[in-house]
Simulated scan of single mutants.
Amino acid sequence: MTAMPQTTDLLSVHYHHLIQHRCGDPNDDLIAKMYASWLCGQGAMPLNLGLPLDIFRTMMAYHFPTMPHISRPAHIRHVDVARMEELDDLRTLLHQSHSHTGPDAGWMVEILCAGCMGSDHLWQDLGLWSRKDLSRLMQDNFQSLAERNSKDMKWKKFLYKQMCEGEGIYVCRSPSCEVCKDYQACFGPEV
């Protein structure tokens, strides 16, 4: 009798299966990581990575055109409907700074919005494998926004700070981040 593979083994199997079918787009790797994590129950992504089913299928067919079958996880997470207004504000911020003109333009906005609804670090909620993956996603897809994060603030905190400042809401009482007593919470290591 064979032992059940560990989650990391399944994660690797799902990821490598997807990568064999990639189209060569820079986002293939990131989507493969998020999708593999989603299949293994990791991260906080809702059904279809936060996309409507038809758009999810279109995205997967674009990034992995020769993949014969799209698997779906047994678990289902949902976005908190009480946070929909927050999602709209985040969506607006991301659309304004999206640097892609291809089909990925709307997909990454919606996926990132869904990931922001989780309660962990954004890279973990998205099902990415490191913060470096998220920084690459931001740089490749939201370059102008990524460049504004010049001090390497944690991404979810940075996005929400940008939304607040866009609305003229300044919740931080410190004159600058460097002198704030909560500096570690925004800029410290993500573990």
Rank of each mutant, 00 (worst) to 15 (best):
L51Q: 01
V179N: 04
M1E: 15
H21D: 09
A146Y: 11
Y35T: 08
H95N: 11
S119H: 10
S119T: 09
A3D: 13
G102H: 07
P175H: 14
P103T: 05
Y15S: 02
I169A: 14
A61T: 12
L137D: 02
N141S: 13
H75N: 15
Q20R: 15
R136G: 08
C40E: 06
M138P: 04
Q184R: 15
M4Q: 10
L94V: 05
E85V: 13
A185R: 14
L159H: 09
G166F: 11
S135W: 10
S135Y: 09
S144I: 03
R148Y: 02
M45A: 00
W123S: 03
Q143I: 02
Q6E: 12
D28L: 04
S135F: 07
H95Q: 13
M67T: 10
H16T: 09
L10A: 02
H16S: 08
M60C: 08
C23N: 04
T8R: 15
N48H: 06
W107A: 08
L94P: 01
D9H: 13
H17Q: 11
R148C: 04
S119L: 09
I19C: 06
E86A: 08
R173P: 11
G118C: 01
L47A: 13
G43V: 13
T2V: 07
G106S: 14
A32D: 11
D140E: 12
P73Y: 00
D133T: 12
V81L: 13
M59V: 00
A32Y: 12
S150K: 08
L126A: 00
K156F: 00
Q20E: 15
F142A: 06
S12R: 15
L10H: 03
P46M: 04
M34H: 08
D28F: 04
H98P: 00
R173F: 13
V191Y: 13
G127Q: 06
P52T: 11
N149G: 04
M138F: 05
D133W: 13
C177W: 03
T58Y: 05
A82C: 12
D25K: 14
G102L: 06
H100F: 06
S130N: 01
Q184V: 14
R173M: 14
N27A: 14
K161V: 14
A36H: 07
M34A: 10
G106N: 14
L10C: 03
G24F: 14
P65A: 03
C177R: 02
D125W: 00
K181T: 03
G43N: 13
Y35C: 06
R173W: 13
M60D: 06
A105I: 06
C23H: 04
L94Y: 03
